[in-house]
Amino acid sequence: MALVVPFGQYVPGTSIVHRLDARMKLLVVVTFVLALFLAQGWLGLLICTALLLALYLTAKIPLRRAARGLKPILILLTFTFLANALTLSALPLGEAPLIQNANPFAGPFALPESISFTAGGGFGFKPPGALRGLYFALRIVLLVCVTSLLTYTTPIVSLTDGMVSLMRPLAKLRVPTEDIAMMFSIALRFIPITAEEAEKIMVAQSARGAVFNKGGLIKRARAWLPVIIPLFVSLFRRADELASAMETRCYRGKGRTHLRTTQLRAADLAIGGFGAVALILIGILL
């Protein structure tokens, strides 16, 4: 049983997208998402789409792979589209929003459903609603694809290192950034180990006749107890042993030195900075 990886799994490569510093990539992704929500019409969204396509091509990530990543949200997309296409038609024709300002009520984080349901009334398929549905669906697609691109082109370790490094100024506010970094690292290390262990226990209990996928909700939940209890017992033992190992190696959250340098190259800064500014502008102006 394979561990389900959220978004995409790292695809090794040497493209400029791959080589860009993880912190800068995070910055660009965050501004890209901001631009998606700030954009007030089709033009902004289409420019974002074009940009993202260009990035996928540069990174040499097959679009087929990105499409596969959209499968789990297919239902959400369909629902978004249909909810808009069907309910918006209740508005009198004259008041139907024009294409240019397809989401007049949307603030930066407005959810599509919140608008579409205010219309109320009868059902029926009408083009303006369909267009608006398409707009929202595309926005979700872009959101997922841009975060997937990040995980396709960046090893998880670099990502967490990047996040921790971006957090570092918070240490001055007495936020225990070293400890948080440590927790990230431990979590990353133990997720696959725990998944493998869960699978082993499941198989062992199946050999004792346990069945996991029959009966009602409560019966199913109970069926998992013989897996969950040993798994927790084991996790607590691991935690205990890991704590001893860390004490043995004199771990402390403060006053550690670091082997790896975290200097940004000029090119990283330039690309990251320009990218972020450009995206914000797209979002605000279009």
Binding site: V157, T160, S185, L188, R249, Y251, T257, L259
Partner: peptide
């Protein structure tokens, strides 16, 4: 505790 061999060996000396 670490996610790469290098970081793991450096962990003690860093502490």
């Amino acid at each position: 505790v670490s996610t790469t061999v290098l970081d793991e060996v450096a962990f003690g000396p860093e502490n």
